[in-house]
Design a protein around this nucleic acid. Structure first.
Lengths: 144, 144
DNA sequence: CTCCGTGCAAATGGTTTGCATCTTA
DNA sequence: TAAGATGCAAACCATTTGCACGGAG
């Protein structure tokens, strides 16, 4: 069962309705996250709008909040914008110089998360702010 | 030489003027950070205002940005608010349930920062979002 | 005396809210 | 058909901007 189907049954389970708008948003955000992107609200809103021009901001906001609540995505804020991300455990590196966001090397993430878990901290999302150099961001440069 | 004096000479060095407003803000924020607080913009603004009622929002914003630039503080955003913090290396735990912010146990922070540095990442600020339990936040519960 | 900094008010931009209308279950 | 979702516009709130005035160097 893929993520999309999982989310749909989760929605039904918890008494939320499955609407075309929600399906559209779920499909698009999963697509972006699969590509290792860290989409902002506006990026998500714009791609949703390009498919469904009448959809409203409030619907997209509500849906994203819902998806966060049911554990499909996590979010964090930077420079006044909300970024969305997959729940899968990893570290987000925010480059203070360029304002870019990228995943840290999985091996680093694994090590750090292990340290945290050993001390009883279950991280849902980790954001590390740094002055980045290319080699830190590795090959995971954001492609937006 | 204490932090306050260091900042003042840094300002002069870089050609920034030392104004009574800046001194006031620097004094108050250092006081809060020394108490292990994680003040928001509004908390800082309000205490500054209570001492200097005519100071403007823009001055406080400008000064905080300046202090971040010269490396006195770091900041991160959560639920639409900006939190300020000391630069000293440590991990901030944000509790998604209660919206509280607290420092992680120094021993955990040390371990995690060591892992990051070993991989060439120099963290200026680390924020871990979690569903907190009292024992994770330890004795470092925020006192605001 | 000259810039830089300040204060004020208006503008901006992301997010939320209220409400009438529509739709899922 | 009834509770819940949607779309729209207005409201909100944190932050930024423009500009005349004031003070640090």
């Amino acid at each position: 069962m893929d993520d999309r189907s999982k989310v749909i049954s989760l929605l039904k389970e918890r008494g939320y309705r499955v609407t075309p708008q929600r399906l559209e948003i779920i499909g698009l955000i999963l697509e972006k996250l699969d590509r290792k992107q860290h989409p902002t609200f506006n990026e998500i809103f714009n791609s949703v709008r390009s498919h469904t021009p009448t959809i409203s901001v409030s619907t997209v906001y509500n849906t994203l909040k819902l998806l966060e609540e049911i554990g499909l995505v996590v979010s964090f804020e930077y420079k006044g914008e909300t970024f969305y991300d997959k729940v899968e455990k990893h570290i987000n590196i925010v480059c203070l110089d360029k304002g870019q966001v990228a995943d840290a090397d999985p091996r680093i993430s694994e090590k750090v998360i292990k340290s945290l878990m050993e001390e009883g901290i279950e991280p849902l999302n980790i954001v590390v702010y740094t002055r980045c150099t290319r080699d830190v961001l590795n090959s995971n440069l954001p492609d937006r």
